[in-house]
Amino acid sequence: MNRQDQLLDGFYRRDTYSPRVQDMYPRDQPSAFAGVDPVAHTQSPIVTGTSVIALKFQGGVMMAADTLASYGSLARFRDVERLHKLTDTAVLGSTGDVSDYQHVQHMMERLMIREDYHNDGHKLAPPHLFEYLRNVMYHRRSKNDPLWNRFVLAGHHNNTSFLGYVDLQGTTYQSDTIATGFGAHLAQPLLRKAVESRGGPQNVTEEDAIKIIEDCMRVLFYRDARSLNKFQRATIATDRLEITEPYSVDTEWAFAESIRGYGV
């Protein structure tokens, strides 16, 4: 019995008296659908990016992601940019399938062009882009054909910071700090501690934010085997949006010699 049959068996041969369709058509009879596989969509990501981390600070938002795109456990592409400038006030960061992310990039690009054609002074602000993205993601999950990503959208528009998350199931939330993937476990506690100990994002300076982000990226590089010490950092503040060229943080590996299994 192959795996699919095993699974089906679990459904069909349950001990029940309810008159279900499956019971009325014995499985040893030839089926009208014999040899026809059900439509299969993406069931797993292929080339993936790891964590995106972000936090709000006084007068802006900061986000970072490394430039590695893995093929399973293989570090396949080492200079893939996972932060994308959407508008003059919003940046999109992506965890998960890189081709799905590039598809979303194109889609958002088309949306911006459509919007610019109006040329009437109306711009899609970060919350509007976020809602659009939520709709796309939820729609695709509802078709059982998800875009395999966890997106972080950061923006600063009309002196209001925006930081939101949306994933392959259409789940959304907004928060002062966001971290996806491994970062949700390793970086999120550090980000929350950094922001809450200062009494909120309004007390976090831009210098603080850079330090916090870099500390988190360092921890992620130490602990996340699908990460790379080469990352970009986006800053979205009043009248300013910049995404750095990829850069690294200093790391210390001398201690590793004393770790069994790494050193001797």
Binding site: S142, N144, P146, T171
Partner: peptide, 10 residues
């Protein structure tokens, strides 16, 4: 195994 589910519990 990464099995996709359209649902999650929040």
């Amino acid at each position: 195994e990464h099995r996709y589910s359209p649902y999650t519990d929040n």
